[in-house]
Amino acid sequence: MDGRSMTGETSVSLDAVDHAILSVLQADGRLGVTEIGRRINLSQPAVSARIKRLEQSGVITGYRAVVDPTRLGLSIHAVVRLRTTHARIPASLDHFAQLPEIVSIYRLTGEDCFLLDVHAASAERLEAIVDSVARFGPVTTSLVLRTYQTKPMEPGRPQRP
């Protein structure tokens, strides 16, 4: 294996300290480098240099606030699967970009082409979104009953049998 992913990008070699930094940042991206260093027993300049390298190599792609959609009045959470044709994929993507309720778009293999993560204020708004997406092909909509906490990424750690 040459370290290239399916997209052709080269993977980055990470050591245990890099993994520790990533783990701390995924738990709390607002921590300062001094506190990160204290938690993993590394100096502030060393932590700063490693974080900069992780950012420049594309391992760390950004920092963001995690927002509770229900607190914003978006009480309906659904996943919408769309089956379309290859010719309609660009138009579909353009349409998705116009709908702020679609917060994640996944291109899929198999029968469905896209999985959309949708947060809407009402059932009527979800209906309008589903109807607008359905012009590109058959859709299947599922309401999300509960979201469980996601796990932080731990790439590059081989699993033991």
Rank of each mutant, 00 (worst) to 15 (best):
R39D: 02
L116R: 01
L31G: 05
G29N: 10
G137T: 03
G73F: 07
L93W: 08
L72I: 08
F114M: 00
D18C: 10
G73C: 06
E154R: 13
L115C: 08
L115H: 06
R83A: 13
M1Q: 11
L93T: 07
A91T: 07
A46E: 14
T147E: 14
H95S: 07
G58Q: 00
R30Y: 08
I102E: 01
Q44C: 06
S132R: 05
V33H: 15
L54Q: 09
P152T: 08
I21F: 02
A128P: 04
I105F: 04
P158M: 06
G156D: 02
A97Q: 11
A46V: 07
D131M: 00
T7N: 10
L14S: 04
R4Q: 12
M1C: 11
V33C: 13
E154V: 13
E127Y: 11
I105H: 03
Q44T: 14
G8A: 08
D18K: 06
H95G: 01
G62S: 02
S75D: 13
I36V: 15
S75T: 15
T147L: 06
L145F: 09
R107S: 09
P45S: 01
V118E: 00
T140C: 06
S23H: 14
S92G: 13
S122C: 08
R125Y: 01
P69Q: 08
P90I: 03
G29V: 07
R53S: 13
P158S: 08
P138I: 13
L145Q: 13
S13A: 14
G32K: 04
A78H: 07
T84Y: 01
L116I: 04
R125Q: 09
E127Q: 14
R71D: 10
Q56Y: 00
L115D: 08
V118W: 00
T61A: 09
I36W: 05
T109M: 09
A121I: 05
L115P: 01
V103S: 14
S5G: 15
H77T: 12
Y63R: 10
S43E: 11
R125E: 09
G73D: 04
V133W: 01
T109Q: 09
E127M: 10
S132Y: 03
H86G: 15
G3W: 06
K151V: 12
C113H: 13
L99M: 14
